[in-house]
Design a protein around this nucleic acid. Structure first.
Lengths: 230, 230
DNA sequence: AAAATAAGTGTAAATGTAACACTTAATTTA
DNA sequence: TAAATTAAGTGTTACATTTACACTTATTTT
């Protein structure tokens, strides 16, 4: 019946993480320089193998924590890559995840250990294996997802100004957004809480700080199916 | 550094297929009755293991062909499921795919061999392991995707009436659609070719048949990024 | 010839999105 | 201490998209 029945085969399963950050108005990607063959010295996504006594999600969190020191962050499965020759070292199936982190919480010490560096989106070098494909898909997913869900907050500090939030959206979508329309839309979602504090860093007048309202967000996502993406 | 480093572990990787069909105005799902432990006699998605000498996509196509006899059909990766205890027989990571097939081309002979049956969406029995979760996700994906891309055609015969197409959309989205608005929108997409033939099965007057224009669709999807979903 | 059946068609209201420029608060400098 | 500087903050109109809504037409059956 079936020409090839692979019932008794096991395979290496790996994780690769597309790690997004946001700094100085620019969207960034965390890459590491490979310290082992194959492709030693080439830029790569952070990755590792899935053990047989941990879930795939747990492996993704574990690997991300190794590099960033961060535990509870936004991490979502992107796609499973399964071409036979995708990894030149042999047959490895890789489940790609993308993470959104607040760059302030990133552990630079750890990063140095892995030879990690942040790259702005227009300066991403060519990557090993099919990692560039993964990054492309992650960017598309991020663009789409931020239209529907306000996940962008994950990339900002807990308190942020509307201007910062707008700059983030502009960085993700790579286009200018009208200030009035942006504020109208984002505030109408009702997931932002205006604080009494002002940020005086970037202007003389000072801009009000806002906080993401997770409770309201969770309520909306549970109530309506609209926000539900995948 | 890392508490658990699973570098040297291999894992079983499986495929599970959510197979959609459309018949008599109803969206349907193809399920099989398990003929082996665990969960013998329980309803399940069609599945199989990924061999170490085939790509994950190839495995998905192979397994689908086994059951349906169909080779070139719409098949798209849904999600990789990796909980430790998801399969009660042991540690198996499963990559779920969903398929859209024209039910006329389905090989009933083969289906009988596997104990396969078509279920309408409101009659889906409880399924083994995490298969119900997979089905839920596939339905959500299908709903979303048909809003953006006209992939619904995959479920219809090559020639179809606008009424049939509308019934398909109504079945997927589980709500009535206004006939005039539906026709306006679907025709404005410009991916349908009206034929000179009429279908006289369902009305005395007869309804014009249409054909999906793949060339135009491919052109649009390559040109504009709009249709691009994931 | 009349009845029955599903196919086929257009317009107006409502909603959502996009375009557009000036005022205000606070600090710095002259 | 008044003028200049800087980014924050704010509404309205035009345009596009989506929704709501009902009758006529072609053909077959009785």
């Amino acid at each position: 019946m079936t020409i090839y029945d692979g019932v008794h085969d096991k395979n290496f399963v790996a994780i690769d993480s597309i790690i997004f950050g946001f700094d100085q108005g620019r969207l960034k990607l965390l890459l590491i320089k490979r310290k082992m063959p194959p492709m030693e010295g080439q830029w790569s996504l952070m990755g590792g193998f899935v053990g047989s006594h941990e879930s795939v999600d747990d492996a993704a969190y574990r690997i991300l924590e190794n590099l960033t020191g961060l535990k509870s962050i936004f991490l979502e499965q992107l796609y499973a890559y399964g071409d036979l020759d995708r990894d030149s070292a042999g047959r490895v199936i890789s489940v790609a995840y993308y993470a959104l982190i607040n760059i302030d919480n990133y552990d630079e010490e750890l990063g140095r250990k892995y030879g990690a560096e942040w790259f702005t989106m227009d300066e991403i070098p060519s990557l090993v294996f099919d990692h560039s494909t993964m990054v492309q898909k992650a960017i598309r997913r991020l663009k789409r997802k931020t239209i529907i869900q306000p996940i962008g907050f994950e990339l900002l500090p807990p308190k942020f100004t509307l201007t910062q939030l707008q700059q983030l959206y502009e960085a993700i979508h790579q286009k200018e957004i009208d200030k009035r329309n942006f504020r109208k839309k984002i505030l109408s979602m009702g997931v932002l809480n205006k604080l009494d504090e002002k940020d005086k860093e970037s202007s003389k007048r000072g801009a009000f700080l806002y906080k993401f309202n997770k409770e309201k967000y969770d309520y909306l996502t549970s109530k309506e199916n609209l926000f539900d993406f995948i």
